[in-house]
Amino acid sequence: MTYDQLAVRLTALGASLHRHAASLSGPAAAKVARDLEKQVAKLEQLVAQAASRDTPEVRLVLDLLTDHAAVFPNARLADFAKRLGLKLPGAKTATPAALRAKFHEAVAAAGVAPAAVEVLGAFARAQAAPAPDLSSEPAQRATLRRLGAKSAEEIELELEAKFSDADVRTLARAAGLKVTAKAARKGLIPVVVHYARRHHENTSLTGGA
């Protein structure tokens, strides 16, 4: 029996049950009904899971994870899972391939495929971007302006993907910020994101006065 045949049979059963429900009685019928209800619940869950996986976004997540496997090591995937509010049990011991599969499953089950596509795609694009040119002060400011044209999340991802700790500090100084030699990357990234966007906005030749 195929799933299609089962669907036809269940549809017919449903219609018939609806018509003759008042005629059913007795412990035997009640037991069958209770057992069937449990199986139907399991089947509903399986169908829902399958349906959630069967979207363009979920397929795109799989494509991104497969095509850019090298840029998504376990630690990075665990970080993205946290960002998307997913739980990845066994992440520390899983092989990269197994974790990618878990990640994909978790994304589909939680219904966060669009957000996952955005974050994974932005990170993959950031990885593919040219190495930052920080060779001179004008080059640093040009990099700041280029970054500032992006969304906050994209800037953050590119900083994570392409900029060393020292690079992030250099960018912060190019924005005119006072930064110590030991300023922590984690605290500095949101500040650089803000000032890069402001720098782009304030110095744009097309906007404002």
């Binding site: 002060e137 004008p138 400011r141 005119g176 910020l177 006072k178 402001r198 720098h199 304030n202 030749l205």
Partner: peptide
């Protein structure tokens, strides 16, 4: 004092560089 003025000067430098690139 703070970052306010340093940031504003960096923005000015950036503006000059952009206007030079655009021939303005």
């Amino acid at each position: 004092v703070g970052n306010v003025y340093g940031v504003a000067v960096a923005e000015l430098k950036s503006q000059i560089e952009q206007m030079q690139s655009a021939g303005l």
